[in-house]
């Protein structure tokens, strides 16, 4: 958490004057987003308003049609797709990304925390949508990264899963992290701000 402490009063992500064009339509323009340690921003908007597009720009996946994104810290990404391969078991998934990130975290411990210890060795194509989502979210616990970008993190999760993810978000904020989520419906955590698209 040393990295977080050093940046306590600084932004973890700052986007200025963002604009997106899809075809001949302007999705949004002159949008500014800033998140500091401990903050949780919720991106709001109707279907097709550009929530995912904005999140992808913040994560560096899409080039903004206007504006700039500054992201001085590393971030975690939970996209609309889980990133789990059909033949990959939760164990293989967490081991793989643990290797990529040089993580020393115990995959089994993370799995039991996420409630996926039972299907831990079941191939991805045989998992339920909620189990796949839990596996993807388990990546957040593999490496300590100050910024979380989450696209509909609660989708496909049951009540207990939602409570679990809410507690992860609360804990992350308490330890100096920031979260930006694209969400439908009520946010189960206390949002520090909303971005209306």
């Amino acid at each position: 958490m040393a990295e977080n402490a050093a940046t306590m009063n600084e932004f973890l992500i700052k986007a200025v004057g963002l604009g997106a064009i899809r075809g001949e339509r302007v999705l949004f323009s002159d949008l500014s987003v800033e998140a500091k340690a401990g903050e949780a921003l919720v991106l709001r908007g109707a279907n097709g308003a550009g929530k995912s597009t904005l999140l992808r720009m913040l994560g560096g996946l899409s080039r903004p049609d206007a504006g700039t994104v500054e992201r001085p810290v590393r971030h975690h990404w939970i996209g609309h797709r889980n990133g789990l391969k059909p033949h990959e078991t939760p164990r293989a998934h967490l081991t793989h990304w643990g290797r990529v990130w040089g993580s020393t975290a115990d995959a089994i411990e993370i799995a039991s925390h996420m409630g996926i210890e039972r299907p831990f060795d079941v191939a991805g194509r045989l998992l339920s949508a909620g189990q796949k989502r839990r596996t993807a979210i388990a990546r957040l616990l593999l490496a300590d990264r100050p910024l979380w970008l989450l696209d509909e993190p609660f989708s496909a999760l049951d009540t207990q899963g939602k409570a679990l993810v809410t507690s992860l978000i609360d804990r992350h904020r308490a330890s100096g992290g920031a979260v930006i989520t694209a969400l439908h419906g009520e946010a189960p955590f206390e949002a520090s701000g909303e971005v209306q698209l």
Partner: peptide, 17 residues
């Protein structure tokens, strides 16, 4: 194509590697 459909490519594209 498989990586793109699974969302694995998204993850790689955001890595420092």
């Amino acid at each position: 194509q498989a990586d793109l459909e699974d969302g694995v490519l998204e993850l790689w594209a955001q890595e420092e590697t």
